[in-house]
Amino acid sequence: MKPYLAAALQMTSVPDLDKNLAQAEELIDLATRRGAELVTLPENFSFLGDEEAKFSQAEDIRAASEKFIKTMAQRYRITLLGGGYPVPSPDNRTYNTAILVNANGEELLRYEKVHLFDVNLPDGNTYQESARVTSGTAMPEVYRSDRLGQLGISVCYDVRFPELYRQLSKAGAEVLIVPAAFTAFTGKDHWQVLLQARAIENTCYMIAPAQTGFHNARRQSHGHAMIIDPWGITLADAGDTVGMAIAEIDPSRLEQVRRQMPSLQHRVFG
């Protein structure tokens, strides 16, 4: 691959499909005007805030989300990652799904989120993702691109499980993408350090699009969409407002770090 610009978009999605897609298109347009060739949307980019409403509209959200991702990729001639968004599952729940699409609108990768966020937080918020979401059963795969490098995808809560990223790096991943809607409570302490840890231990770039702000009266996301290099250095941080983190993915930097710190070659267990 040659050096290229990647964008991690940051949104404040709400329980309004049309409004969210309009916001996403505006950000995609801005990212491509700045030269981004790989653009990534956050988890729940198309609908966020009211879980019952999302579940009741799951098929409509799925259809609109997939059409949007493919249309935007073709229109702007980019590789675009979108997700997660709900896809109805056989057990009358949904899969939290992310897809990677090329500039021809062709699906390159599909991943159904494996780790589900079932947590009672000290701030009084309870998240029970498994109530409406079916856990995926397959490891995410790596997409090999001469232009963009070897890309691995995951979703949000996955970032707490290093074994998933180790498997991706063993499969050849050079760039790891983590679309997220990290809670404000956990994000302030854990978001950046987890992204840096995954980058450092796998000597990979991390691209982490994010949600920010309030999505309804109770749900608030941390923000800070980021791009982190293989040494763990934060190249771009979107802060806590709608916008993006944009930075160069440089193969020579990847090679330099892996040469200086060849830890992937020193694994003893797994």
Rank of each mutant, 00 (worst) to 15 (best):
E43P: 00
R34Q: 13
L48Q: 13
R77L: 12
R62H: 11
Q57V: 05
L81R: 08
P90T: 06
I28R: 01
M11N: 08
S56Y: 11
R77T: 15
E37H: 12
P86N: 03
P42M: 01
I78Q: 06
Y85M: 05
A6R: 03
P42W: 03
N102H: 10
A7E: 06
K19Q: 14
N44A: 13
A58V: 02
K54A: 05
L27K: 15
L100I: 12
D29K: 15
T94N: 15
Y76W: 09
F68C: 01
L21N: 03
E59G: 02
A8M: 10
G83P: 02
A22Y: 12
T71N: 14
D18P: 06
V14K: 11
T97N: 06
F68A: 03
A24F: 07
M11T: 12
S13K: 02
R77H: 11
N96L: 09
V14P: 06
D91Q: 10
T71V: 10
G49E: 08
K19D: 06
P88C: 06
S46M: 01
G49N: 06
V101K: 00
L81Y: 05
T71F: 09
Q74R: 14
N92P: 03
T12L: 09
E25M: 01
D91N: 12
T40Y: 04
T97I: 03
K19V: 07
V101H: 00
E52F: 10
Y4K: 05
I28Y: 09
E25V: 04
T32R: 15
A53H: 04
Y95I: 00
M72R: 07
G84C: 02
D60A: 15
R77E: 15
G84P: 07
D91A: 11
P90G: 06
G83V: 02
P88G: 07
